[in-house]
Simulated assay, not measured.
Amino acid sequence: MALQQTIDDTVRGLGFELIEVERSAGGLLRVTIDHPWTPGAPEQLITVEDCERVTRQLQYVLEVDNVDYKRLEVSSPGIDRPLRHVQDFERFEGELVDLTLKAPIGDAAAGQVHANRKKFRGALQRGEGSSWQIVWRDEPATKPGQRVSAKRPPAPEQALTFELDELQSARLAPVVDFKGRKSPAGNTENLE
C-alpha cells in the first residue's frame, strides 16, 4: 500500500490522476494515468510526452524508495478505461459501458433478463439517489450478410439499477469505427 501511495503522490504532484497500478510476477510495474476531470472543461488526452515525464519522475522516486522492479510502464487508460469511483461514473454518464456484477441479479426483471446474468453492456445513466442504471436492448444476432427488415420492431429497452458496491468491475466499452469519421450529414469526410 505504501508503493501505491508513493506513486499516487508523485503522479498527482505532476498534475495527473492515478488510475491504476499493476505489478506482475515478472517484475513489470504498470502505471496508468489520466488528466484530472473537471465538469464542463474540454476533454484532455494523455500524450507520449506526459507518459515520459511521469516515467522519468517515477524512476527517481522508486530508486530513492528502493522499490524492486525490472521494467516501468506508464500509459493512458485507453479506450476500455476502468470506472472505479463515483467521479468516473459522473464523467462518463451517457457512454456505453461494460459492467460485471459481483453476484447474479437473482430474480429476473419481468422475465426478460436471465436470472444468472452478471455481465451487461449498455448506456450508463444516473438513477435515483446514489444508484446508477444501465440501459440496453438485447437485439437478436444476425448472420453475416443477412438483411434485416426496416419494418422489424426493435427489441424492448431494458434497464438495470445498481449501486457501485454491487459491481465487480466496470469499464468503458471499446467502440472502434474503422470506416472513418462521419460528417453531420452522414457522408464520409475527405481526409486529405
Rank of each mutant, 00 (worst) to 15 (best):
M1C: 10
M1G: 15
A2Q: 02
L3I: 12
Q5I: 02
D9C: 09
D9Q: 14
T10I: 01
T10V: 06
E17C: 00
L18G: 12
E20I: 02
S24P: 08
A25K: 15
R30W: 06
T32A: 02
D34Q: 03
P36K: 08
W37M: 00
G40C: 01
P42R: 09
P42S: 06
P42C: 00
P42W: 03
L45I: 05
V54P: 03
R56F: 04
R56H: 13
E63M: 09
K70E: 14
L72H: 02
V74E: 02
V74M: 03
V74F: 01
S76D: 00
G78D: 06
R81C: 11
P82G: 06
H85L: 11
H85E: 15
D88L: 01
E90G: 01
R91C: 02
G94A: 11
L96C: 10
A103H: 13
D107Y: 10
D107N: 13
A108D: 15
A108N: 15
A110S: 10
A110V: 06
V113R: 00
V113Y: 00
N116L: 14
N116P: 03
R117V: 05
R117D: 01
K118P: 03
K119V: 07
L124M: 05
G127A: 08
E128F: 04
S130M: 07
Q133V: 08
V135Y: 06
E139I: 04
P140C: 05
T142E: 11
T142Q: 13
P144Y: 08
Q146G: 04
Q146F: 04
V148D: 04
S149L: 09
S149Y: 01
K151F: 05
P154D: 10
L164F: 06
D165N: 12
E166M: 11
E166I: 02
L167V: 07
L167A: 04
S169A: 08
L172C: 07
P174R: 12
V176N: 10
D177K: 09
K179S: 12
K179H: 10
G180D: 03
G180I: 04
R181T: 12
A185T: 15
G186N: 06
T188K: 14
N190D: 14
E192T: 12
